[in-house]
Amino acid sequence: MSADDATTPDPAPLAFSGQRLDWRDLPRSVRARIQELAGAQVTAEMSATSGLSPGFAAVLELADGRGVFVKAVSPEQNPQSPDLARAEVRAAQAIPPEVPAPALLWHDDDGDWVLLGFEVATGRSPLLPWRPAELRRVLDAMAVLSQARPLPGHQLITTAEHFAEDFRGWRALAGGPGSDLDRTAGWAAGTGDWLRTHLDQLAEWAGDATAALAGDRLVHADLRADNVLLDGDHVSLIDWPHASVGAGWADLMFLLPSVAMQGGGRPQEIFWAEPMSAGVEPEQLRAALAGLAGYFTYGAVQPAPVGIPNLRRLQRVQAEQALLWLAELA
C-alpha cells in the first residue's frame, strides 16, 4: 500500500490531557512538605492544562513572590507514575545547559509521594493545527537537543534498553487474541487492514529497531505539542521521564506521527528535510518506525491505565499516522 492508496486522515487538532489533582486535593502533609522544600507559603496555583500524567502538576505562586512548577504523584493516582517521576529526576540531572529545558530545583521521595520542583517554564503550548512557524521553532530547538550528550555521571539507560519490550508490539499482537487484531481493522485511513496483511514483515522490521536507535545523544523520547512551551523566541522542552541515550534523530521520528495527527504535515517530507536526518539510512528509519508503530498499535488495544483515560486514543491516532508513514517506506 502506498500513501496515495490511503485516505488522508482528518487533520483537525486533537488535544489530550490527564486527570489532575488540585492543591486542595493533596494530603495536608504533602502540602506542608512542598512549602518546606519551596521555602515559602503557597498563595496561589495555576494547574497545568497539558500532559497526560495523573497527579498534581501546577505552577505555585509563593508568598515571597517567587514561582515554582511542582509535580506530585503517588501510586493512588497510577501505580507506575511514581517511578516515572523518579525517572524524571534522573533525566533532569543529565540534561546539559544548552538543551532548552526547565531546571530541577528540588525533589523529595518518601516512598509513597514523589515531589519535584522545577523552575517555571513560561509560555503556551503550540497552536493546533500546527502553524508552520511554530513547528519550525520547535524543530530548531530539537536540532540543538539532537547534538547534546547527557552530562557525565548520568544514570540514564540507552534508548534501546528503554524500548526493548515496547518495540515487540507486533509479536505480541500476532501471539495474542484475534480480537486485538480485529479491532485494528476498523481504524481510519485503511491502516488496520494493511497491518494485518503485513504483520510478519512489520515484526521483522521492528526486530532491528533498537539497533537502529543506538547512539550517544540525549533523547527525550516523548515530544509532542503538549510537551512543548513557546514564549516569544524561546522554546522549552518539558516532561522528561522517558529520557535515554541513543540516536540524535530519534526524537524527530518520535515527534512526527503526532505532528501529522495535529495537522502539521507529512512526516516523510519533514523528516528528510531536517539536517537531523543526515546520515540516516532508509532501512534504519523503517526499522525504528516499525518498532514505534507496533508500540502504539499494541498499546491502543489494551485497557486504559488507571488515571490516564485518554492514553489509548492518543496511541491509536499516532499508530494510524506511523503506519501511513511506514507504508511509504515499505
Results as ranks from 00 to 15, higher is better:
Arg131Val: 10
Phe254Asn: 10
Ser17Lys: 02
Ala243Trp: 08
Asp208Glu: 14
Ala188Asn: 09
Glu204Ala: 15
Ala48Cys: 10
Arg137Asn: 10
Pro13Cys: 02
Gly294Asn: 12
Gly178Val: 06
Trp249Leu: 09
Glu204Pro: 01
Thr49Pro: 04
Asp166Lys: 12
Phe16Asn: 01
Gly123Met: 03
Pro27Ile: 01
Ala330Trp: 12
Arg28Ser: 15
Asn227Ile: 01
Gly190Ile: 02
Leu252Trp: 12
Trp325Val: 02
Ala243Gln: 12
Ser47Val: 14
Val59Cys: 14
Ala188Cys: 06
Ala141His: 06
Met276Gln: 14
Asp110Phe: 10
Thr197Ser: 14
Val99Tyr: 03
Leu326Gln: 08
Pro100Thr: 09
Leu314Ala: 12
Asp25Arg: 03
Phe16Ser: 02
Thr184Leu: 15
Trp106Asn: 04
Pro309Leu: 00
Asp110Thr: 09
Val228Phe: 01
Asp222Phe: 05
Ser236Leu: 00
Ala58Gly: 14
Arg20Pro: 15
Met1Leu: 11
Asp166Arg: 14
Glu283Ser: 10
Ile308Trp: 03
Ala243His: 13
Asp226Gly: 05
Gly232Asn: 08
Leu21Ile: 01
Arg124Pro: 04
Leu195Val: 08
Asp109Lys: 09
Val280Ala: 07
Ser81Phe: 10
Leu127Met: 07
Asn78Phe: 07
Leu151Pro: 11
Val219Lys: 07
Leu128Lys: 05
Trp240Thr: 04
